[in-house]
Design a protein around this nucleic acid. Structure first.
Lengths: 197, 197
DNA sequence: TTTTGGTTTAACCATTTGGTTAACAAAGGT
DNA sequence: ACCTTTGTTAACCAAATGGTTAAACCAAAA
């Protein structure tokens, strides 16, 4: 692993744990086991290092999501695939959703340019498909955007609000992970059940 | 409005916008229109000022939630009441959910002591009620905790991930708020529909 | 072997930041 | 009037923080 990779991985760890404002360049350097000056040698400054990490985090999710959204499957099948593969992925990267959500809320300007320029999840094709299946009488008449929001909410929220959920439900990490494993199949059934005619 | 209130309101504004790490004491003082030394005179230090704001934010939500969770209504009625009144409240306080979730994720130790000592949302009674209604054949057999999580997710997520949602669905603030208004009634129907026998 | 180019580091710097101090003013009680 | 308490401020301070620099290091080219 070369120095740039070491820095990047360290930065990802620290940024995801502390957020942009809470992260310290020195801490990233220590985590990477290199001199702080190397951070600036490789990534110019904190903002650019952060953006590199953020873009990477987001770009891990986007293609995976779009691949499912834009496939040739039915809506029901897409819901099943999305929930299952998203949760599987996020169980392995639990810091990703809170990180992305937090930083998007904290940097509205950055977000705007981000969604204009970058490869982001795009559900427009899936929305059209939902409308079509509603017309065909497969799905109950609902607002496709609300359905999309429901799917994201059921899938992402437990990870985004990790600590809150554990606190309110009085469960520990092990129980939490068990719940998430079950959620892989439960959610899709639940959603499909509520919209199929 | 006395000085302490001025400081508190300013602190709430700044903390909710920037988070604990991103907030600056000077900025809070400016927002309050008073000298920075007054912050320390009234609230000792940043951590305590933050905790005052956080506790207050949380304590606005908790009683409202518990009142619904622990009433004598049916589960279906509670779901309807909760989603409606929570969304109504949060439309008026849109910074609350991201703030609470973010800071809980960033301060795990603080959260632990927090949930031990303070008046927090407690769904244990509602969970028992759900089990009972499952036994009575009113509700399909499901894990009550998962149902709870679903309700929170559908309700809280759009606000917690405000910016992300707007970005992915390509909607502006006005459309977002319209969606949330509709959600007040949609969600409960959706959830009830998926669990009623 | 020497040179050269990128790589890495210790030391340093300017600014920011949370927090303190000491003086001052206003109010209240005696 | 006089003292005490409370509220308020400008000036200050030490530590932390993002960023810079100049020198050292080192492998490969000449």
């Amino acid at each position: 692993m070369n120095t740039e990779e070491k820095i990047f991985n360290a930065a990802r760890t620290v940024f995801q744990k502390k957020g942009f404002a809470g992260a310290r360049m020195q801490e990233i350097a220590d985590e990477a086991g290199i001199n702080k000056a190397m951070l600036h040698y490789c990534f110019k400054n904190k903002q650019l290092l952060f953006e590199a990490v953020f873009m990477n985090a987001f770009s891990q999710l986007a293609p995976q999501i779009n691949a499912i959204f834009n496939s040739n499957e039915t809506v029901f099948e897409k819901i099943t695939q999305f929930t299952h593969s998203y949760i599987s992925f996020v169980i392995l990267n639990p810091f990703l959703p809170p990180f992305v959500i937090q930083e998007m809320n904290n940097n509205p300007e950055f977000v705007k340019s981000f969604f204009k320029n970058k490869n982001t999840p795009n559900p427009s094709q899936l929305i059209d498909q939902i409308k079509k299946e509603i017309d065909q009488g497969i799905i109950k008449p609902i607002d496709p955007q609300q359905l999309l929001l429901d799917i994201f909410a059921m899938t992402v929220f437990p990870f985004a609000a990790h600590m809150l959920v554990k606190g309110i439900l009085h469960i520990n990490d092990i129980e939490f992970n068990k719940m998430m494993e079950e959620r892989k199949t439960i959610i899709a059934e639940q959603i499909i059940n509520s919209i199929k005619k």
